[in-house]
Amino acid sequence: MRKTNYYLLFLLLFMAFPQGCELTDDGTYTAPITLYERIGGTWAMSSLTQVDEVAKVNDLTPVEEALTNKFTFKSFKIALHVDSLFQPTTYEVTGTAPELFATSGYWQLDEPFVHADQTASNILLYSDEARTQLTDKLTVLTIPGTKAVLDFSLTRMDNGSPFVSYVYKLKSAN
């Protein structure tokens, strides 16, 4: 009886696999939709908040400072370019805001899909096309969906501990 059960289970699995991997039958291959389709584009400043990560951990005040209306942060725009296949290419920051991270280069996500373990995706910025020289990492806080907003944070580390973050809330400027 037990032998029969195992046999049946194996048969079910065997049947399931080929079907899942089968190409669609419309004649052309369509790559799965990636985050690049949602994150690629030009984004403009809604708000910018500086967060004191040391104060946050130690219950000190203040923890945050609103920078949106300071200097020329309002003029901040970032264009995350993708090619026709929605693969990431270059990026550039325009406006006259203080340059908290490198203002041009190449970008990619650490994974093209939402992380299976629910951790935040990261936009990785590089100075070279081969993407060997990482300049900055922007952690995605809100992925654009029905609302065309992109939120990310730039966190600076001191010996592995975060000490300051900048939370960018951006709106689509396509």
């Binding site: 500086q50 990560e53 040391v54 104060a55 400072e65 908290l100 600076r156 000490f163 300051v164």
Partner: peptide
């Protein structure tokens, strides 16, 4: 008198 943030680098905004 307070300096913000508690730790700062040359690439930051000092308040």
């Amino acid at each position: 008198l307070k300096f913000f943030p508690q730790k700062i680098s040359r690439k930051d905004i000092l308040v």
